[in-house]
Write a protein that binds this DNA or RNA. Structure first.
Lengths: 338, 338
DNA sequence: TTGAAAGCGCTAACAT
DNA sequence: ATGTTAGCGCTTTCAA
């Protein structure tokens, strides 16, 4: 293993000079810089992470806590996670992968061991057990998601309430007056995950404002569950002409079942999804949708975390990304309206 | 920040005693052990990761390199990754998340910086550019996947060739004589990813042995692509009575299209999938399938890596997990056969 | 512009 | 069964 000392000897300079060449924290003459850099290359030197962390109390590692669940749509989580990893590398940081099942204890562990310089947390619940620890922690944390009390915390999330409102507006503009919402699995609401509740609030709020009827039903992702939910909806609200789906696993079954039951999309009923972009684009009828901007959320979270670690910290705030509704082939004017 | 020295002072013992209490590497009297442990708790001590890594040249971190692609089915990758993370924690290790786009350079970086004690690599190609570095590395590596030359490497994978063979056998046993294979996207084969090629080899080999006709077509996951592939298959081989699908994204479209074209599953055609268990179970017709044992693969990889790090190393070998075919509702005897 | 030297907090011989 | 002590490889004052 090549050490700083060996590089220093090889380049004929002191250890500190090598260190400063590497960190750029003090001016170095062009001549020595080149000599050192060439020694680094020829010896294949890589600084020892442990030693560096110990001496500088910086690990250049960001801990990322990902959900470990089966009732959430994984591709979005995965996309956020890989976006975080990629963005972190671009800033010279590595990612330590923590799973949500470790709970608040993981926060303590990371904080205590100085394993990471900052934490990024996903799958934030409205009243998340990790929040008190994060507020008290000496190292910065960024949430991807929005708890009910974001005070003193750095948050990045899609503005799901606005997303819900946008869906209702789009449908109202097309003449729809009765909307049914096929939601996430009931467990997601019970857990009081922020995004699902907020979307619903946005949907309901705008529906009330515009005088639309809105029926919401949680729904599992299986084909059978969607079939059951759909038939209940049709029974209760035969006048329904539009659906909002917030459940990636349910979109394909929903389209298939509508088709099967003789309801053409978008001629007879319209469908708007709040979902992963690929799911919307690849569906059997390409779906008008509000996408979750996973990559941007990951990137923003990392940028904030890095800024905080490196002392360019902004005030804690909730950054809510504006939703963007993309019109595809699944929405049209109501039959009555044409 | 609480240090070892503070714990030692608080407990009235030397630093080394505290260290040994924590590591269990030498006998400690019950009395001092208890005193130390109580001090640890009351002070809220957590060993500093950097210092420990520096002194012991062990980071208790395993680096996991995950694919960063869009043409692979992510849930399986995600499931493996979370299984790896969970298993690692159970052994006292943390996971450092590396993305595949860093390529061989990441191997050098981790090796050089001693950031991780071992590496686990996913998405292994038949002739993977990272292999030479891994063979030369001083730290152990475990591949999840199987390159063409696994010599000197520790590998864990599903026996995809056996999986392919099992599919053919099952169908042959039901009287099918003409099988069509709907495969992964063409890019997956071009990249020479091991698993896709090996499944195909297993399918072809057993089909040849049993005298069945077998047609293979790569296929993108979109609805349109599956439709095109299906119609080509039907044109070329009108006698096809069974499909093998190895492409999670294509299964649902395939079932929908078969239904639409008046072919009932399993009455008219049988379908066997090599895919994620959930995809098979949740499909509109629950699919007879060979599942990728993602959790077990992750667990086995971690166990091997930990054993190697801790000096209980076995010889390098390729561990191929036996496939298990689960019969569900998508396969039946051929119409001609009943 | 560079060097010397004192730690960072821990582990692991080497003592006793 | 426990204490003493010498590093691990780096960063960063303090000096020159």
């Amino acid at each position: 293993m090549v050490t700083l000392a060996e590089v220093a000897r090889h380049a004929g300079v002191s250890a500190s000079t090598v260190s400063y060449v590497l960190s750029g924290k003090r001016p170095i003459s062009a001549a020595t810089r080149e000599r050192v850099e060439s020694s680094v290359r020829t010896l294949g030197y890589h600084p020892n992470a442990g030693a560096r962390a110990l001496a500088s109390s910086r690990s250049n590692i960001i801990a990322l806590m990902v959900p470990l669940r089966t009732d959430m749509y994984l591709p979005v989580m995965t996309e956020i996670a890989t976006a975080v990893a990629t963005a972190a590398r671009a800033h010279g940081y590595d990612i330590l992968l923590l799973t949500g099942d470790e709970g608040p204890e993981a926060v303590r562990r990371i904080e205590g061991s100085a394993l990471a310089d900052a934490m990024i947390l996903m799958d934030v619940e409205l009243d998340d057990g990790r929040l008190p620890l994060l507020r008290a922690a000496t190292r910065p944390a960024v949430l991807i998601g929005l708890p009910s009390d974001p005070d003193g915390l750095h948050c990045v999330d899609l503005d799901f309430a606005a997303a819900g409102a946008a869906c209702v507006e789009h449908l109202a503009g097309l003449g729809h007056r009765e909307i049914a919402v096929v939601g996430e699995a009931a467990a997601v609401y019970e857990r009081r995950t922020g995004f699902a509740e907020r979307t619903l609030a946005g949907l309901r709020g705008r529906a009330a404002e515009l005088g639309l009827r809105l029926l919401h039903r949680p729904c599992e992702g299986s084909y059978a569950a969607v079939a059951a939910t759909l038939s209940r909806i049709v029974d209760e609200r035969p006048g329904t002409t539009a659906f909002v789906v917030q459940n990636e696993a349910a979109t394909d079954p929903l389209l298939a079942l509508l088709r099967q039951s003789g309801r053409a999309v978008p001629e007879d009923v319209s469908v708007v999804a709040v979902c992963h972009e690929q799911v919307a684009a690849r569906a059997s009828v390409p779906l008008t949708s509000v996408a979750v901007p996973a990559r941007e959320m990951g990137r923003r979270a990392v940028e904030r975390a890095v800024a905080l670690v490196e002392g360019r910290g902004a005030d804690p705030e909730a950054v809510l990304l504006a939703p963007q509704l993309t019109v595809r082939a699944s929405t049209a004017r109501t039959p009555a309206d044409t």
